[in-house]
Structure formats: structure tokens, C-alpha cells
């Protein structure tokens, strides 16, 4: 079987910001963007990426969401956080002022076991402050 996008990012490219937490597409920790669209890199085979642009947390380090996550205390252990921010970046890219409902709908695939959800919602609501 071919390598996954996640294995390529973390292994060959040494980009360890993208995390592996379940490895089978259930938790969202490995979320990256392909041409701006969030995908689960642990279940995406790297050869299917083709010409699409891959954006990982390493490419979003200066995104205002990073600051708003820290400001709102939207992380505890922080292991799921890069995936959360990548997902949120896709959301605010498409909908700059998302409603609480839109946030909850869009972010429901990113599990945070520490339960930072109320702060994550706050961080996305205030990302441009």
C-alpha cells in the first residue's frame, strides 16, 4: 500500500505539526488543506494529492487564528490544536464571520479530549479581533 499524506508530511518532510491521534479518519487531528479544502491526511494517499496545494499548520503559523486560539485559551494539551486551527482556517476562509451554528457544524469533526470546545468556539468567533 502507498504512503499516506500524513506519513509523507511527518516522516519524509519532517513536518511534525500535523498530528496523528487515531490514524483512521475519526478525530481530525491530522487535518490539512488541499487547495483550501480540509482533508484527513491520515486516510489520504499521497499519490492522490496530484497538483493540489497542501497547507499544513506550518503554513498557517502567522494566521490570526493562532493568536486567537491562545488568547481565548482554546487549547489545553494542545495535541489536537493544529488540526483544529487548520479546520478553522478553512471555515473562516470561506465564511469570514461564521455564526456559532456554522462553527459547531464545521468543527464537529475535530475531537478535543480536553474539552476546550467553548474556548475554540470563542477563538473562532473572535479571530479577527
Amino acid at each position: 500500500m502507498g504512503a499516506t499524506l500524513l506519513e509523507t508530511l511527518r516522516g519524509e518532510l519532517g513536518l511534525s505539526g500535523t498530528k496523528i491521534a487515531c490514524g483512521e479518519g475519526h478525530c481530525g487531528a491530522c487535518t490539512v488543506l488541499l487547495d483550501g479544502v480540509p482533508v484527513l491526511s491520515c486516510i489520504t494517499l499521497v499519490h492522490t494529492v496530484g497538483e493540489r496545494e497542501v497547507t499544513t499548520i506550518e503554513g498557517l503559523r502567522e494566521h490570526p487564528l493562532v493568536r486567537s486560539f491562545v488568547r481565548a485559551d482554546a487549547l489545553q494539551c494542545g495535541f489536537c490544536t493544529p488540526g483544529q486551527i487548520v479546520s478553522a482556517a478553512a471555515l473562516v476562509g470561506a465564511v469570514p464571520e461564521p455564526s456559532r451554528e456554522e462553527i459547531r457544524h464545521h468543527m464537529a469533526g475535530n475531537i478535543c479530549r480536553c474539552g476546550a470546545y467553548p474556548r475554540i468556539e470563542e477563538a473562532i468567533l473572535t479571530w479577527r479581533d
Binding site: G17, R61, G78, F79
Partner: peptide, 21 residues
């Protein structure tokens, strides 16, 4: 106050055991 290591964690720079090689 904001957590001291918040940025490192949020930016995916914090080295967890899972990230060590």
C-alpha cells in the same frame, strides 16, 4: 493570563513525544 506555551502548541512547534525522532 494566556498560557506560556500556548503559541508553541498552537503553531505545531511543541515537540511531543510523538514528534521526537
Amino acid at each position: 493570563v494566556e498560557r506560556k506555551d500556548g503559541l508553541e502548541r498552537a503553531r505545531g512547534e511543541a515537540p511531543y513525544t510523538a514528534d521526537l525522532k
